[in-house]
Amino acid sequence: MDQFLQAIQNSITTGSLYALIALGYTMVYGILKFINFSHSDVVVIGALFSTVLALTLLEKLGLQQAPWWLGGVVLAGAMALCATVSFLVERLAYRPLRQAPRLNCLITAIGVSLFLQNTGNQKFLFGTQPRKIPALVPDAEPLFMIGKVPFRLIDFIIVGTAVVLMVALDRLVFKSAMGRAMRAVSFDHKTASLMGINVDRVISMTFVLGACLAAAGGFLYALRYQTVTQPADTTWALLGLKAFVSAVVGGIGNIRGAVLGALIIASIENFGAAYLFSGLTDAYVFAVLIGMLLLRPGGILGSAAVEKV
């Protein structure tokens, strides 16, 4: 029973992290119909920059213990940086290729990803040493226990932040003028632009939104796992890949699908590790991807009935 409850708790927490990252993949795919492979590198920038920022702020303020608001400041800082990077990537690398075949964009995305990784690895940026983020929330003891399963404050913060951000995104996309413009562009670039929508601005906005969620994902990831490795570490590529698989399983291009897919992928991983052979958790994830692509290539919510973004 403890094992089952623990697996559920883990699935929700890791699922929230995957969802934050998966949303960036799915939004860009919805609008531009290409997979932004450099998205996982934005997550890395979010994780590493929040670590550096938290360390610097604590040192500059001369504090031993982080005040409660510091986490918010760090998150805002990470979001600002990731949004800027993502905006520039779109402006400099993808926009010139707007009329080019989609394969060109895909290959450019891989190039951007390698560029971000290797630049981030340089000494004058993040370097290659693993870093440890200071404790921004009190985390010595769990809040409460159910059976033997500890419930920790950090888990609630992760899930809470993810839910707030995702609800905000959902409102933005389905209730605001900008959201309507995004949905219009996703349907048809040309028609949308004839209707007076500034397509380039909408696309920039999509990248910025995706990057903000990725920054939050990176920040929460760092808080939960504490040690943050170098930008070119394969761990990050795998994290990005799992988020991408979540987006595909949920139905790529579909916002709610990405969240659903993330929860499914996280459950497969955690229940696989708990009840099946634990060395193969990654294999389970990709087996599900293959099965999904064979049986229902559009993903769970990927049918035409659901409005795409």
Partner: peptide, 14 residues
């Protein structure tokens, strides 16, 4: 597990 993984709760519960 595999080097670089970060999430061990499920395995440790086992």
């Amino acid at each position: 597990y595999q080097k670089g993984e970060k999430e061990f709760n499920a395995r440790l519960t086992k």
